[in-house]
Computed example of a mutant assay.
Amino acid sequence: MNHKKDKPIIGISIGDINGISAEVTMKALLDTRMQKLITPVIYAHGKALTFYRKHLNLDDFNFMQIRTIHEVHHKKINVINVVDQCPEIIPGVETAESGKMALAALDQAIKDLKEENIDALVTAPLNKNNINSDEFKFVGHTEYLTEAFGSTESMMFMVSEDMRVGLVSGHVPLKEVIQEVTTEKIKKKLKIMLRSLKDDFGIDKPKIAVLGLNPHAGEDGLLGEEEAKVIQPAIREFQDEGHMIFGPYAPDGFFGMMHQKKFDGILAMYHDQGLIPFKALSFETGVNFTAGLPIIRTSPDHGTAYNIAGKNIADEGSMRAAIYLAQDIIAQKTPWEVE
């Protein structure tokens, strides 16, 4: 692939075709500005896209069927069939077949990423119920990709125009969070966040806020000791090295006073602590970026939304933002010459 002439190739794994994944993907790619910046490759099945093209009256959505990534066409939307037979499409209904296709799409995209045939991956939402089996446990895209690329540590990094929120603990039950939040783990996540803010987002001297674990950030030990014994030692270590890392902050007051606008990154201790304010403030434009991997992966910040699937009312803003963020990070890392 000649990077100096070609547009970056961004793969999109279709996720669950009975959810809103196909709808938001197709609507996002109808943006003509996007096709001038990237070459999209959708890992799915042509019949699924043809179904939604007709069902949603997306007459302007045209694509080219290719057998492998090596046939990619830079002036078209490309589609690779990841299964021989397209499953029956029933919008809003969870089926085992759509789960198998979602996994096949993800696996084929990962293969092409490993072989450096695509420059980034955008993962459309899938359903963890129908992708799992007795032999296979899928916790989430982040964990699956971390294992696939042999990384020891990664970080779920939620990104919008106004805020970037990283997590110390991800998809774990709340009762296990206390074991996950250790000084060492916080230090690992801060290293990933610092490097990502510099390398992926081009921020030379990032300013990071660290949230507390307990209500009121422990209230000087009255409501918990983790802030003093676990979180503050990690912060102090980075401060001693000259990094602009501050906290721990009480999350309710921090977001209530809109302090997120003062920082380049925010490190939350657990999933809902970071994602509830993020999604409340950035739902239609938020992106899930996996920091710390040797590849670029983004995703919209919503799920399959079975309740509105096939109704032509899904908002493609988050999917569009996910594709643009992937393109921005590629551009930050590689001197592309887009024609």
Rank of each mutant, 00 (worst) to 15 (best):
N18A: 02
A22P: 06
E23R: 09
T25K: 01
A28Y: 04
L30F: 08
L30C: 14
Q35P: 00
K36V: 00
Y43T: 03
L49Q: 08
T50V: 02
F51I: 00
Y52P: 01
L56P: 02
F63M: 12
M64C: 11
R67T: 15
K76Y: 11
I77T: 14
N78A: 10
I80E: 09
N81K: 09
Q85N: 14
P87N: 03
T95N: 01
A96H: 05
L103S: 06
K111H: 14
K114W: 03
N127P: 00
S133T: 15
S133M: 04
E147R: 15
S151D: 10
M155G: 06
F157P: 02
S160R: 11
S160D: 14
H171V: 13
I178C: 08
I178G: 01
Q179I: 00
T182N: 06
T183L: 07
I192W: 07
M193G: 12
M193R: 04
L197P: 14
K198C: 03
D200T: 06
I203E: 04
P206C: 05
P206G: 05
L211C: 09
D220C: 04
L223K: 06
E225S: 14
V230L: 09
V230Q: 01
I235E: 03
R236I: 07
D240T: 14
F246Y: 15
P251K: 04
M257W: 01
G265A: 13
I266Q: 05
A268V: 04
Q273A: 11
F278E: 11
L281K: 09
G286N: 11
T290F: 06
P294F: 05
I296M: 10
R297K: 11
T298L: 13
T298H: 13
P300G: 08
P300N: 07
A309Q: 02
A309Y: 02
K311C: 10
A314G: 12
G317E: 11
G317Q: 13
M319A: 02
R320A: 15
R320E: 13
Y324Q: 14
L325K: 11
A326S: 13
K333V: 05
W336G: 00
V338H: 11
